[in-house]
Structure formats: C-alpha cells, structure tokens
Design a protein around this nucleic acid. Structure first.
Lengths: 231, 231
DNA sequence: TGACTTCGTGTAAAAATCACACATTACTTC
DNA sequence: GAAGTAATGTGTGATTTTTACACGAAGTCA
C-alpha cells in the first residue's frame, strides 16, 4: 500500500492584510495594490509574493510589505495559512497570510509606491479582489476584532500621541458598536497604561484635547503576570 | 533591479498536536509517536507528514492523523505555520501545525497504531521532541487555554455524556487554576447549553452524578447572534 | 461678547462575581 | 441493617464590575 513518493514541493506565498485607521473619517482602511500581471491582471489584491528559500515566513512578509508598499517597522503577525488546491489558477500555491497594523504616519509612504498602484480602501468599500483575497481579508477582520478586545493593539493604528476620543473612535469603528464616552475613558485609564502628556491636541474651533501615549514597557511587565488588557 | 526568478518550492508538512483528557487522572494529555526514521530517529514527535499536491491542508492533517494514529472525526483546527529556515536539518520544510481534540473513546484507537509506536503523555511530562515540535506544542497549549475561556471546545475532550465534575476537572487542568464548585456549576448551567440526561454516572462507593450532554445546535444559534461562551 | 463645538467629569442602580458549608445519596463493611 | 465513607448538589450575602446618564469648561470664530 505504500508508494515510493517524491515529496511534493508547493509554491509558497505570503499575503498581507495591511490595516490603517483614518481618524478624520473614523474609518478602518485596508491597503490594496493593483496587479500588473496575469492572472487577475488589473484586479485589486493584497500585497504579497513568493517566499524565498533562505528567508523565514516573517521575513518574507516584511520584505514584500517593504517592496510593494514602502512600509517598514509595522506591527505584523501571522494570521492563517490558506491552502485550498485551486486558489491559484496557475498551479498549487499555498499562502501564509499576515496582518499588519500601521500608524497614520506610514500612510503617505504606502500610497507613494510607484512599482504598483497602491490605495487605501475603507473596509466597508472593498472592491472585488484577486484569488481568495476576500476570504483572507474577512479572516483578518475577524481576528482584528477579536484581538482588539483583549490585547492593546489598537495603539498600533494611532499616532504615538493620541487623544482618548481618537482611541474611542477606533474601537467603535473596528468593533462596530458605539461606546459610552465616560465608561470608555474610565476603563482604558484604569489600566494605567496610558501616560498623559504635557501637550494638547488643538484642532478646529473647540476645546483642545489631552494627548496620551501608550506605555508598552509597563504593559509588557503586567502581561507577564497574566494581566489581560480588556476593553 | 528585477531578477528573473524561478519561484522556490518548499516542502510542506502538517503536524498535529492531539490533545486528550484523562478524567481519572484529571490530566491533559498529548499523543506522540516515536519516529522510525532519521532525522531524529527514535525521538518522540508530533504526528504529521508531507502535504500532497492534490489535497488541501485540512485534508492532509486529517489524513496524517488517520494514518499515524487511527483517529478520525475529531475536532481539528489550524494552529500556526512554522517556517524558520533551519527547522528541518535536511532541507527547507515549512510546517502547517494543527491541533486536535479527541474524546476518550478515541484514545484506545490511537494507542493501538502499530505502524509507529504511539503514546499519550501528560502535558506535564513531555519528553524531548524532534525538530521544533516542543515549540509547536507550546503554541498549541497557549491556544487551547485561550480558546477554552470563550468557546465551548472543552466538550470535545469529554465523552458525549459527562458530569459537571468531569467538566470542572477539565477546565482546572487546562487553565491550571482550581475553580469553585458552586460558582462553576452556576456559570456553565446559566448558558442553557447543557442538557441534563435521565441517566446518572455511577462509579465507586458514592452518590452517582447527573450526566449532561452539550447542545451544539443551540450553541450555533446563539453564536450567530454574537453570544460568547465565557467561563 | 455671544455662538459654537468638543472636552472632561461623577454617581446611583443593576448585574456579575466571589467566598463559603452542609445535608443528600449510594455503596461497603461490619 | 447500622455505621462509615466518599462524592454530589445546593443558596446567600458581601464585593466588585458594569451600565446608564447630563452639564459646565475651554477654546475658536464672527
């Protein structure tokens, strides 16, 4: 019953779901690139590409992100591996998907790629995507929503200094529910992980808001003791 | 700057972390097989093997599980993909790891494999493992602990009919904390997902315990409405 | 100086969590 | 058949957490 069997080699890719948050519009966004080559030429797709033999999966994801979107030093985490047989019409291709969270400062960098057209899309207005990228995107959204509730990853989508209102809008956009202002502030401040800054955020025609930064060092200490950042 | 580039093919494997729960000893266990071939000959390892070109990753995991451990129809979920360059001394091998939860009825089936020696080990007494399987196992344990707190997957480790004490012991073993009997029962029953049966569990020299079964249909309905099974 | 807009704050009611002890039931043994 | 043994099954009050909710303060602009 046993065959002599030459181990198959599969083409391996990484694909990245890059999230950004537009505070002005309070909209969660995803970075897509337009494909220049077949298959799915001219379709929008997740940035990604083939894994090289001498690099880890994480390295491949970072490299592709940098090559295709000019983004570096972002929060990047493995999401899921997609391995249905026909997901690529050419041949068997297995894709290890990642998701990335970017700060607004990175946004212009990402947009200015000229290798391929790159654009931010609100998650509510995603165009048809190449391959099974719509599935990958859905998976990433579910993961992001889940993580946001018990890990402090929202800060990865905000500038280093942010106001509590910005943070609240972010949570509301991602989770899809309105939150009570006073209760939200009470809760996030109760962890003592937000450091109030001397500066304020002045914008428009109203009272300026207190700026905060997230304290990752303190968080790391607490996390090791089993602390959960719950919202 | 662009090379002509032959896409690399990587050898792809699946590895499975198979969990079982021994109610008698209140011990979470993992199924390991002893390798018959180099590398790591005679070392203990996770069951797994190469992915074939014409099968999905999930199919490959199920097939390997069946071939190596006689286990079928178990709870199986993708865990993480391990892709460091040197994890296999022979060549670049990327492994998509899965974790499985088995009911006690499957345990003897698993043990009786003769293709390779297979044995259950308490998670507290894991021998040195081949490759990076210790890392994979750790990842699976963390995932299991996390999931158990807000998804009803504990039932996958118990027989179809079980007592509340068995369920409590399971939670205690996996989470590593003792739980209050009255509070635990109040909580799990409050979801109305456990159906009391007419039968009782009679064992030893003491009062028999009420048997329950989990109602997966009802859970599915609730889950779609955003219900979270929290313990 | 008045109109406008967002910021920042406290309290009381309701709900969830936690700590905790003893009578019940069946089996075994004498 | 009485006494001993071992695990089951059950309720309450104290504490903590969550929820709902409104208005004065601070700044800009006309």
């Amino acid at each position: 019953m046993k065959h002599t069997y030459e181990y198959p080699r599969a083409a391996l890719t990484v694909d990245c779901v890059v999230f950004g948050f537009d505070s002005a519009q309070a909209a969660l966004q995803v970075l897509l690139i337009r494909r220049g080559l077949a298959p799915f030429k001219d379709h929008w797709a997740l940035p990604g590409g083939f894994v090289r033999v001498e690099e880890t999966l994480d390295d491949a994801a970072r490299r592709e992100l940098e090559e295709e979107t000019n983004l570096s030093t972002v929060f990047l985490e493995q999401l899921y591996t997609f391995g249905t047989v026909d997901r690529d019409p050419r041949e068997r291709v297995v894709s290890v998907a990642y998701y990335a969270l970017t700060k607004p400062t990175d946004h212009t960098a990402a947009a200015s790629t000229d290798a391929a057209e790159a654009r931010w899309f609100p998650v509510t207005e995603i165009p048809p995507l190449a391959f099974d990228h719509a599935t990958i995107l859905d998976t990433a959204l579910v993961r992001l929503r889940g993580k946001l509730r018990y890990e402090p990853i929202g800060f990865e989508l905000l500038p280093p200094k942010f106001t509590l209102t910005q943070l609240q809008r972010l949570y509301e956009s991602v989770l899809g529910t309105p939150l009570d202002k006073r209760n939200f502030r009470k809760k996030v401040l109760s962890h003592n992980l937000l450091v109030p800054l001397k500066e304020t955020h002045r914008e428009g025609t109203h009272r300026p808001a207190q700026l905060f930064r997230f304290d990752p060092v303190r968080y790391e200490k607490l996390r090791k003791k089993g602390f959960l950042f719950e919202i």
